[in-house]
């Protein structure tokens, strides 16, 4: 497996939010055990060496949990393999000589900062609008006072594994954020601790989501298919149900 390989890249370059962007072509010598981002490190090293500007891209933990990396690779957010992030993608998933198109998340609610980096603060504002349990530090009762059946806890956990990367938005033809919002709403509406604010939460979060300029869901399922953490489409059903019931209750 130690053989080297060469790939041709078409990378989106955009100076800043206002600038017009365009694709630039590069070719990189890599090897199959390299991660996709390490391949970009090599490209940047090469660009710096040649006196050119390196490609700006977001990344941090490089182990698939922080949710910062965000490349659309050949039209798929986080690349050709399912249930992983870009940083977990390895070059062995490509062939020698492949041409790979790399673009940023594209959505009006995620404006490009530079090249492949985008601004996802809209997600923070959605959480700030209601994605929490209002409990000040020190107000808690003993953790085992409220029993939670294992299957409910597991289901809440499954929804809570969302890493907030935004792949769902980038994959959706409508740039809808409902998988992200649905995951948080599902987690908190399942748990006893989330009941007090159950209805006001979902309404506030959906209002904020709409105000941020995300599109409406048309149930294509692209979000769940591209989600690196496998958040299921059913969280959107839950979101719909929770929201409708809250609205019909006059929230």
């Amino acid at each position: 497996m130690k053989h080297s390989m060469k790939v041709n890249l078409q990378v989106w370059r955009q100076k800043n939010a206002q600038a017009q962007g365009n694709f630039e072509n590069y070719s990189v010598e890599t090897n199959p055990n390299m991660s996709f981002l390490e391949m970009f490190d090599v490209l940047n090293e090469q660009l710096i060496h040649d006196g050119k500007e390196p490609v700006a891209f977001d990344h941090d933990c490089r182990e698939g949990i922080c949710g910062m990396c965000s490349m659309v690779i050949n039209g798929n957010p986080h690349g050709p393999k399912q249930a992983i992030t870009t940083c977990q993608l390895h070059m062995r998933s490509f062939n020698d000589g492949d041409t790979i198109v790399v673009e940023p998340w594209r959505a009006n609610a995620f404006p490009v900062i530079k090249d492949l980096s985008v601004n996802r603060s809209s997600f923070d504002r959605i959480i700030a609008s209601g994605g929490f349990v209002s409990v000040n530090t020190g107000n808690a009762v003993d953790a085992n006072n409220i029993l939670i059946p294992k299957d409910i806890a597991d289901e809440a956990f499954e929804a809570a594994t969302c890493i907030g990367c935004g792949a769902c938005v980038s994959a959706c033809k409508n740039a809808s954020a409902m998988l992200f919002v649905g995951a948080k709403v599902t987690q908190l509406s399942l748990l006893p601790q989330g009941q007090a604010e159950r209805q006001s939460r979902v309404v506030a979060m959906v209002n904020q989501m709409d105000a941020e300029g995300f599109g409406a869901c048309t149930n294509t399922g692209a979000c769940a298919a591209e989600c690196p953490k496998g958040i299921p489409l059913s969280v959107i059903a839950t979101l719909n149900r929770e929201y409708t019931s809250a609205k019909l209750n006059g929230k």
């Binding site: 808690a140 953790a143 939670i148």
Partner: peptide, 22 residues
């Protein structure tokens, strides 16, 4: 011990036993 209480109150989904305890 207070940390665990606080986190559970926030909705942190810790692993649980079938009886519902942590």
């Amino acid at each position: 011990t207070s940390i665990i209480d606080q986190c559970v109150a926030q909705g942190v989904p810790f692993a649980r036993e079938y009886g519902g305890t942590l």
